[in-house]
Write a protein that binds this DNA or RNA. Structure first.
Lengths: 118, 118
DNA sequence: CTGGTATTTCGAGAATCATCGAAATGGAGA
DNA sequence: TCTCCATTTCGATGATTCTCGAAATACCAG
């Protein structure tokens, strides 16, 4: 489930050039994720700026992190992405021809608890 | 199609409490849309503020307007919404188990030219 | 043409956000 | 333990955004 304020938070997190590119990068990276350094290189953003955006996206619940030796591996939270999309399209067209729009149910539940039941 | 900057624009347009509520209201209203006054009433937002948000959403291409007598009818642009979602999920999971995620193909192309080819 | 209603524009103030260098932190290897 | 590397926090600055009353505009009915 998604409530209005968390949806606003998630959309706000994505509403920024670097963060959108970053999130899409992780979405496309799949379950393997990417270490912060590699992301910084791929996006051409200074470390301190990237860290800021990474934290923003994390706080919004759109990505998760996992430590792997010295590096922090980030990966997209597909469940959150699907929830957000579902929230946007909720009761779409007042019940007209609307496919439920489903998506990447990937195995994105390796380290952290992805079960954000609340 | 969607490019990065228009996606950022659309997400930024949705990343605001009132605008998100407004957009969802229109999404749920369906093809009939709603006049500005009714929206202001439903959201409890002053006219001048609502107009600002309406313009923002319109500039982002997420909603369209049509004059009907003295009122302006606003309605969601489902094509834009679907494009945005498609952009977010593009190449999801690096080709893993990802459904193409489709949605409200409604007849949302009444007044303005929705063909933003460029 | 005149009156009236629906909606937008104008303007200014308050608040939030993005950027990035330098310094601090946390973990791993020797 | 000591050192090194990856990443984050701190701090200040500049830019953007939200809000809303009052005035202007657009349109329709009579």
């Amino acid at each position: 489930m998604v409530d209005a304020s968390s949806a606003v938070g998630a959309l706000g997190a994505l509403a920024q050039e670097h963060r959108l590119a970053l999130f899409r990068l992780l979405v496309q990276a799949g379950a393997d994720g990417m270490p912060a350094g590699a992301i910084a290189g791929a996006l051409g953003v200074p470390n301190s700026s990237l860290s800021f955006h990474l934290a923003h996206l994390t706080r919004a619940g759109l990505i998760g992190q996992e430590r792997r030796s010295r590096s922090l591996i980030y990966r997209a939270n597909y469940a959150a992405m699907n929830d957000l999309v579902g929230y946007l399209m909720e009761n779409c067209c007042s019940g007209a021809a609307c496919a439920p729009a489903k998506a990447c149910g990937a195995e994105a539940a390796p380290t952290q608890a992805k079960r954000k039941s609340a």
